[in-house]
Design a protein around this nucleic acid. Sequence first.
DNA 1: CCGAGGAATGGAAACGGTACCAGAATGCCT
DNA 2: AGGCATTCTGGTACCGTTTCCATTCCTCGG
Lengths: 335, 335
Amino acid sequence: MSTISDVAERAGVGVGTVSRVLNESPLVSDRTRARVLAIIDEMNYRPSFLARGLSTGTAGVLAAVVQRMTTPSALQRLRGILDVASESGFDVILHNVSSVDDYRDQVRDLLRPDRCAGGLLVSIQPDDDAVSMLTGNAVPVVSIDGQLPGISSIYIDDERGGRMATEHLIELGHERIAFVLDWEDSIGFSPTAKRRTGYRKAMADAGLEVPDDYVKVGPHQHPVTLAATNELLDLDEPPTAVVAAADSHAMVIAQAAQARGVRVPEDLSVIGFDDLEIAEHLGLSTIRQPLYESGARGARILLDLMQTDPRSVIYDELPIEMVSRSSSAPPRGSR
Amino acid sequence: MSTISDVAERAGVGVGTVSRVLNESPLVSDRTRARVLAIIDEMNYRPSFLARGLSTGTAGVLAAVVQRMTTPSALQRLRGILDVASESGFDVILHNVSSVDDYRDQVRDLLRPDRCAGGLLVSIQPDDDAVSMLTGNAVPVVSIDGQLPGISSIYIDDERGGRMATEHLIELGHERIAFVLDWEDSIGFSPTAKRRTGYRKAMADAGLEVPDDYVKVGPHQHPVTLAATNELLDLDEPPTAVVAAADSHAMVIAQAAQARGVRVPEDLSVIGFDDLEIAEHLGLSTIRQPLYESGARGARILLDLMQTDPRSVIYDELPIEMVSRSSSAPPRGSR
DNA sequence: CCGAGGAATGGAAACGGTACCAGAATGCCT
DNA sequence: AGGCATTCTGGTACCGTTTCCATTCCTCGG
């Protein structure tokens, strides 16, 4: 593996000159530049990332910390991040946070100048201590899917989304509306918790009752959603409509209902959240949030902060939108 | 940000000693080790990855090069990689290859000792030149989802999988069986191309005809699959069964069929490939391949190679399995 | 009691770049 | 022609580790 001194020697110039050529400094004559570039090409030389990083004091890589990489929505956000990062010549270190216990240490060790030039938090809800650790962090950080105090954030109004979904069903004439599935275990206020709040407020505003049985809680896993759906349909007064905290739940709910002969939307309306690509093909009504765009926007802002003022804080709320498809309809027997 | 010399000074020892403590060398007295560790803890010192990498000549990170990160199957493999890597304290640089044109340069620049300690290729089909470039590469590489000559590989027998899917339908009594959807554009022999070969051979062995119209080709995108499905169902002699090259296609095919009143499996049997998590909930018959396991196994082998002999080549074929669910049944009017 | 050998330690060289500083070359003006 | 600014260039210190070599300090056997 050849070094910058090898190139300098072969080209008959000093290492400083080669470095200037590499960094596109204007302080090199055209003749010299051409000769050096020719040698670089001939030797197939590439500067060492490690050496360059050590010298400049910053690694030429971004870091994305993702909570539960398993979800399709995380994947969409990640795609946005990767596309924008690679446009600017940055690669991305991907770190999956699965256990809530040790994410603080992991994040602290990863978001350092010798590891990455900037960090993106995807669907992370840090507690107050973690937030204050991050605001003083040496590398700039952007939070995607979660508005954090003192940290640049890309987010949506989850509560309003939950409200919109619920109001859509109320407008169709539904009165018995359930909510599936919130996970209480996560740190801080999760997006699904906010959506549930929106659901509750919409119900209250419409003067509709929410029986305890109508709000299902549990980890985000298919079997749990399946069980929750069956519990709802087993009730003496089953709901005529369900607000799902995410499209991935909505799909399972619809499937589980149809499997036991409950037709969607005739017997049960279902509305999701996210508008995954597949939602369109399944005809799923949903609240659309720009997932890919959230990643892309976050990466763009991060790159921006890195070049200008790493300490400034930018908030960016993305729009959401109600998308009505064929999984929601007026309840049977309505006018 | 404190350095090793700061620690050495505070502890009243030389930098060499601190380094030995950090690297768990036995050549440090217990007393000294304890004092140094106390100081490290007190100062919250962490060694610089960049400096360590430059000194040891290798970056403490793995690289995963993924083709078309958009697919759920790629995500599963990636999860396997991330889980195993983080167990061993490695982070992973994720590089998404979208355009086929420049992947060679990207891979060459990423799979260097100053960028990563090892590389994982996910669903990459390099041409011969790229393969020979990789076999001589300075950092060890493992290919996941594709058997490459001279490169350690994790793979399945895609042709056999295509054959198994087809034979399943033949055994059910189907004679008019179509194949959706192969993408000719990819470099080298893609898995879907091999599955199609298996399909053709099974059909030939059973003495069944394959009209040209019955094999659909195009990029892996929902709209294309949708169009292909409609073309098939519009034929004078539409197929009674479809072998899908992947579950993601099968889902769209089933959906598209049902949308125009063609019932699955009564009017049309559909079999997929992969056994994504969602396939079970949709009742999709499919050929199961261990996606998560492929990533985990690949990462494990890579870590192994890095520690032992980076130049040795290991092949590991994973098992596949026919999973019969409710999307495949005998054709109507069969005995 | 002394020398040998091993354990423990300090310090310097090396890794491969960047950035600064000093000096050389060039051009222009008087 | 000489002086001076400007452009260009070479060399070296430095980034923060690891590793190796030299040195000191023990311990033990003769």
